[in-house]
């Protein structure tokens, strides 16, 4: 790899790290400054709303199957329903994910 490519790699790595670090440091400083008990009240409300929306959006993008055919959509729907059904019964994390993947996999394999 040429020097210029290494420089690009280092710039992206450093830039990505700073994108993760600086906003955290900024908010930490703002929270300390306000000295509010249960600091979440000191956060701008748009940040507390955007956080869950980002997770919802990640859920949406990750739902898109690799191949947009009927079986993949069926497996996706069944896997999602199975995950939700097991979560509703157990309120846990591991088992619903396992059952969701198993249901998805069985339909893909059956096909």
């Amino acid at each position: 790899m040429e020097t210029s490519m290494w420089l690009a790699l280092i710039s992206i790595a450093l830039g990505t790290y700073l994108l993760r670090l600086f906003p955290y440091l900024w908010m930490k400083g703002a929270l300390m400054k306000k000295q509010v008990e249960g600091g979440i009240n000191a956060m701008p409300s748009w940040i507390t709303i955007l956080g869950p929306m980002m997770i919802a959006a990640m859920f949406g993008t990750s739902l898109a199957p690799a191949h947009l055919d009927t079986v993949s959509w069926l497996a996706t729907a069944a896997g999602t329903l199975a995950t939700f059904a097991v979560w509703a019964r157990t309120r846990s994390m591991g088992l619903p994910v396992l059952c969701g993947v198993a249901t998805f996999g069985m339909i893909m394999l059956w096909h």
Partner: peptide
């Protein structure tokens, strides 16, 4: 998009 993550966890 990562700029939203740290502030949400900071509290």
């Amino acid at each position: 998009r990562h700029i939203v993550y740290g502030p949400n966890l900071a509290p």
